[in-house]
Amino acid sequence: MKYCRKCKIEVMGDLKICPLCQQELEIKDEHVEELYPATIEKRFNNHMLLKVFGFIAMIISVLAVFFNIILPSETLWSVIVVGVMGLIWLSVATAIKKHKDILKYLWYQILILGLAAIFIDTMTGVHGWAMTFVIPIMLVVAIIAMYVLSKLLRLQAGDYMIYLLLDALLGTIPFIYTLTHDVVTDIPAWVCILASIISVMGLAIFEGKNMMSELKRRLHV
């Protein structure tokens, strides 16, 4: 036990100065009780990887804009570079943040990749390849991957069902797109909508009760 003459307070633990007034403490008795652990672990690191990556993406973006301005060019190609860098950064950030929950992570990656495809497609003159090929194929792969993962990892219904349902919901978008737009081929969109319907039907038949209760929970108002 120590003593602070100024504060007239007894102080426990192994301190040399008073935590209140920073005066030197007197030793009252030699007994020192350790109250708190001396080494403290930092719980959540600051994701150095993400910072380094963000820095590199920034440099590339700034350089792209710079060269786009000083070099004679008819297109704003740097916008694509900046956009793609932003989306890659977002993708890495999601990977770091959501990696503990693999299906949630997959779901976010699909959104980001889908956006990236639409973005590049739009910037390069709207050829419709994102909606015709990239998104439907990606969704089919995602539905199969999520289904396999849920079995391999023995996930509870609540951990995967919502993502499968969301995949299936997105699966209708390329289908609607091919109906309303002139496209090269509508086969990928058809495969995608079929996969969505089959996956929802599978869920309804085998996990119907769980599906309803999961929906009830997720959608309660």
Partner: peptide, 19 residues
Amino acid sequence: FRALTKQGIRVVLSTNLVE
């Protein structure tokens, strides 16, 4: 805490602050 000791109340302090 000084207000407490000034009123004659005994205070025993502990902290997790490290020097």
